[in-house]
Amino acid sequence: MKTFLENLEMLSLAAGTSGDEAAIKKIIYDEVIGYPDCVAKTDNAGNLIVSKKGKKAPKNRLMFSAHMDEVGFIITHIDENGFLKFSNVGGIDSRVIVGKRVRVGKNEIPGLLGSKAIHLVKKEEFDNPTKTDALFIDIGADSKEEAEKLVCLGDRAVFDSDFEKFGEDCVMGKALDDRAGCAVLMELLKEEAEYDITVCFTTREEVGGNGAGNAAFSVEPDIAVVVEATSAGDFPCVPGEKFVCKQGAGPVVSFRDNGTLYDMELYRHIMELCEEKNIPAQTKHGICGFNDAKFIHQTRGGIRPVAVSLPARYIHSPYASIKLSDAEHTISLIKILSTELCEI
């Protein structure tokens, strides 16, 4: 059984953009299949659905979910000189991609997200973010034929980032949104459960896809808890009112985002539980982003939505960061919810 940190590192390093999550699914499957009372299956949407047998049947059927996919790039064209054109998979600001290194395709060959040198850039181009369609990926090929031997259209590219602990209890790496959520839910599966629960590792969240909705349709829960990594804006350049949430202040419990109005009764109950159990927690300030709850809560006759997120800085870039103390508190809270919400 691997530790939380070992799982997170493995998941962060692996490549799995939206619609191409197979490598992530395999890592999770190979690990959780050895955990007690877990049965795992994959569905037509590519989700991994893990049923965990508890000591008793719950009053409320409970589903947890975290998405497996990450933002990245899809190769759309190879030009006559062997340079690759691409589109973004998910929301990526050009200011995090110009001049970065990526891994391209199944063989993960190195690629360079190139642009002309700054010396050749006009002032207005230098002040305004570069248009993504002006960029290209260089794999070191000298011709179209040479490039075609290494890359096919539809191949994906991800940031070529390593994973490292740093500072006071922090880790950095790519795709922590939402591999951190996946690793948190793997912790939940490690121990014997009080009640039967279902944990879904879902697909296509970053492109607003419906992987989680499909999973919820099959699982038919009463309550769904989405575990995410959400934008912490607690750093310079972000005006105070846009800070959303803070690193180091514990899990973020949402009452609203751009996709979902969360169940207020459950939201308040969870905030009270945190206080009672001495788990630091915060809510999401301001309304931004959305997550799998958007699709889950509208499934079948409706599912009561809950979102618990890890505050993560610099998501959707080559290096995001989370604080391990936030991860520990999120794991504690999720474990409590796995019994409390079944009984409520």
Partner: peptide, 25 residues
């Protein structure tokens, strides 16, 4: 430090020379 796309309209320019911040945790 990079501003995620979820926090919109904060700054739609490339950072100025003295606005490059480092987070060492």
């Amino acid at each position: 430090c990079s501003i995620p796309p979820h926090i919109k309209d904060v700054n739609d320019k490339n950072p100025e020379r003295d606005e490059i911040f480092i987070d060492i945790g």
